[in-house]
């Protein structure tokens, strides 16, 4: 595994040369375009979701071997519940199959998996159980951390943090950004450095709102089922060429690491 990392690392060049920055620590993907991919082929929407599976595994592997430490995937938003019931049922079954199919592989790759959100009672209990099992299984891994946002909403997380903050009785003057962030779900998640949204849409869609504050945004025209490792690496290169200032004149570096 280490050898492979070295090889891949040199191939995509995370080397910290003068004037170029390294690999983003935290990459977040909005997986968009499954429906359109299917429509262009006159297939039912569900086949677009099915085709997305390959991309997900490809991107996870590409991110891991490129040295990305945190990868977040936006799988299902709180708004997605408004989709037709049959499509939701299909998605739930598909996700369950994908999780179970790839669990041993993810674990063997040393990837720590966890699921952000997953609060809605409409999530079938067996699926929630599989999420919990995969989290348990991989909790001790020290490789890349894969956060799958499922039934996630960025605003909802912020509201939940505010609630928890008020409940803990912190006086208003004592609240600062760092203290607030500690109340978000998975408070150890660092700021997102790079957001990739596929299919040419240019929105953030309520995704990890707090963490994307300073993220670079890259909108790839490729539809998610067609998106592959080379596209992903291309996005990393684009990121590396950009200059990040965080509103000031700080040199290029990744976003803040959380305690």
């Amino acid at each position: 595994m280490t050898l492979e990392e070295v090889v891949d690392g040199s191939a995509c060049g995370p080397a910290r040369e003068e004037g170029r920055r390294g690999v983003p620590r935290h990459v977040a993907c909005v997986m968009d375009g499954n429906g359109r991919w299917a429509a262009r082929r006159s297939l039912p929407r569900t086949s677009g979701h099915r085709a997305a599976e390959t991309t997900v595994i490809d991107v996870i592997e590409a991110a891991r071997s490129a040295g990305v430490e945190w990868l977040s995937l936006y799988a299902f938003s709180t708004e997605n519940w408004q989709r037709p019931g049959a499509e939701i049922d299909f998605l739930m079954r598909l996700v369950r199959r994908v999780v179970r199919k790839h669990a041993p592989l993810l674990h063997a790759r040393g990837i720590r998996c966890r699921f952000l959100g997953v609060t809605d009672p409409r999530i079938p209990p067996p699926l929630a159980r599989d999420f919990a099992d995969l989290t348990t299984l991989t909790a001790g891994n020290r490789g890349m951390t894969l956060t799958v946002a499922f039934d996630h909403g960025g605003r909802r997380d912020i509201v939940a943090a505010a609630r928890s903050l008020i409940r803990s009785g912190v006086p208003a003057e004592a609240v600062d950004e760092r203290c607030f962030a500690a109340h978000l779900p998975f408070p150890d998640t660092p700021d997102v450095d790079l957001v990739i949204r596929t299919s040419g849409e240019q929105r953030i869609s309520n995704f990890m709102l707090w963490q994307v504050a300073y993220a670079e945004l890259i909108f790839s025209p490729v539809l998610w089922p067609d998106f592959r490792a080379p596209h992903f690496l291309e996005c990393l290169h684009t990121y590396q060429r950009r200059e990040r200032r965080f509103g000031g004149v700080r040199p290029n570096e990744n976003g803040e690491r959380r305690p």
Binding site: V99, P104, H107, R129, D130, D133, L137
Partner: peptide, 8 residues
């Protein structure tokens, strides 16, 4: 962990 893997 072993239990989780078996179930999965």
């Amino acid at each position: 962990r072993a239990g989780a893997l078996v179930r999965l």
